[in-house]
Amino acid sequence: MSLHIVVCAGIVPDPLQTLEPIAGPNGPALKNEMMLPAVLDPWAASALYEAATLVSKFPGSRLWLVSLGPKAKLQQVMMTIAQKVTFELVAVDSASNGFADASATASALASGIAAIPDLDRTKLLLFGGWESASRGAGVTLQTVGELLGITDQFAGVDQIDMREDGSFEVLERVEGGKHQASVCAGAPAVLGWATGNLPEPHNNPQIGMANMRTVMPALQRAKQAALTNDGQQYLSASLPSQQRQTRVVRDLAPDAIAQELVEWIRTQ
């Protein structure tokens, strides 16, 4: 059994940066976003690491990373990501950001995936983050799946166990800190990953050098995709306000602290 896994992963500003929404000529944008260092979207990065592990277990499998974003930024991020796992990059050049329309983004991604030569859709597992760290619309991956005609979809995935007959069991996050276990008959399917269970792989520059043989040409031939907003309007954009409720209490006994915590949890 072999798999063809496609991971959709965008790039987002480094979480340590100060983000300030501003009104741009084409709608809301982040101030100086082009100049902020970027990282691979953390949710999608989990999907990528899970995919690489899965591919390594099934000889003959292949892994594509489909990424939509400004080409220069993609190149910067690839210098790190390409050292972690082996993949083939499909780059789509676009001025994408957290305010891009999810439908337009999904359409560009689906077109990119559909154009991958040698991709066997009967073996296709479409991976990605169940939402993005830039805005968290949480609908892009599902839409890509719909556009590609894949109707078996899972969101908030933390684990996948492949079976010999090609079917697989998926653990999806549900309310109350629990997982829902589902069994799917087999590919094709869409899996929107939460964090998964794998740590971030260490950098391995030899993997990086091997990946770069395909990454750099992929970046050079990246097709431009104009994302239309299709009449969508943002009335306002703001960062979530920071909440901090602090009391300074001296000499409180551990039991009393624990009791207070329990009471607070009960009220939530």
Partner: peptide, 13 residues
């Protein structure tokens, strides 16, 4: 030199 860029990123990490 993407080999050097990768090394710089690794060392930075």
């Amino acid at each position: 030199r993407y080999d050097l860029q990768m090394l710089a990123q690794s060392a930075r990490a």
